[in-house]
């Protein structure tokens, strides 16, 4: 034991510890401040990402094979249900088209070029997930070259799932809403009830035990009922307006009884994401 803690060794250990924590602290600070990581880190990530696809591809193919097998078993039932929806969808689509046309014309008349609901999307597939219990992070196969930038909202399935946290040239990292990092789920959202009144706020947290998103510090008197749809409000200028977040699951008073807390059931299961859409606000 005495030999292990000889002077030289001790100095080495302390130096390594200091370096290690310095690097960690530095990279956390850097990640929060800069829009892209340093060039050398990007370069490394791009190379690793490229080789990653070689290994990830067969694994993903296996998964999709298993998935399609299990889907096959209830395909008939599903097909009947979906057929009914498709006929309705055609009507909605046509109506949507005419409304979009009208909207465009009206905007032109008002000389309004880009509003908060105009956004373009980049579709990407998920390569891997960080193997860690402390970070809920996905790595997707689109990066700076496809127009992805930091802080863009990421959608999957029918709703919002997270935010771009790091951008490299050909891949980027997505922090899921379930991540414990405080910056990851602060989205400006709004809830409109049946009478057309709106409650504005932000997502303030994620409750792991129930899988619900939290909208805290709501002082508005507007009545919100269970099942109301929650969408992003577009305030803050990074996130477009009208991205679907989920439905209200529960409304309760906060710890001091002064404000309300609204629990939101997210529209997408964060643990089964293969394809994501990155939304970019037009400006």
């Amino acid at each position: 034991m005495r030999k292990f803690f000889s002077n030289q060794r001790l100095v080495m250990i302390v130096v390594i510890l200091v370096l290690c924590f310095g690097l960690m602290g530095g990279s956390v600070a850097l990640r929060n401040r800069r829009s892209t990581p340093p060039l050398i880190q990007q370069f490394g990530n791009d190379i690793v990402g490229f080789t990653s696809t070689v290994v990830a591809y067969p694994v993903n193919a296996f998964q999709s094979g298993v998935n399609s097998l299990s889907e096959l078993t209830n395909a008939y039932q599903e097909n009947r249900l979906l057929k009914k929806q498709v006929t309705e969808l055609a009507q909605v689509k046509v109506r949507n088209q005419t409304l979009t046309e009208e909207n465009k014309q009206l905007k032109k008349e008002l000389k309004l070029n880009h509003s908060l609901t105009d956004y373009t999307t980049v579709t990407a597939s998920v390569m891997t997930r960080t193997p860690s219990s402390w970070q809920n992070q996905l790595i997707i196969n689109k990066g700076e070259t496809s127009g992805v930038t930091k802080n863009m909202p990421v959608l999957s399935g029918s709703g919002l799932v997270g935010r771009i946290s790091e951008v490299n040239k050909t891949n980027s990292k997505v922090e899921l809403l379930s991540d414990s990092n405080e910056a990851s789920n602060r989205f400006a959202i709004q809830i409109s009830n049946k009478s057309g009144k709106t409650v504005n706020g932000i997502i303030t947290g994620y409750q792991k035990s129930t899988g619900l998103l939290l909208m805290g510090h709501v002082t508005s008197k507007v009545k919100v009922t269970k099942g109301t749809k929650v969408i992003t409000s577009g305030m803050g200028g990074v996130t477009p307006k009208g991205l679907y977040v989920g439905k209200v699951a529960k409304v309760s008073e906060d710890d001091y009884g002064l404000a309300k807390k609204i629990y939101i059931k997210p529209a997408t299961n964060f643990n089964n994401i293969n394809i994501v859409t990155v939304a970019e606000l037009d400006s």
Partner: peptide, 19 residues
């Protein structure tokens, strides 16, 4: 190295089911 990430992604429902 790559299987770690790929498996975490594919089996994320099983690996990271709360708690």
């Amino acid at each position: 190295f790559f299987l770690d990430g790929a498996l975490s992604n594919v089996f994320s429902g099983a690996f990271f089911s709360y708690p």
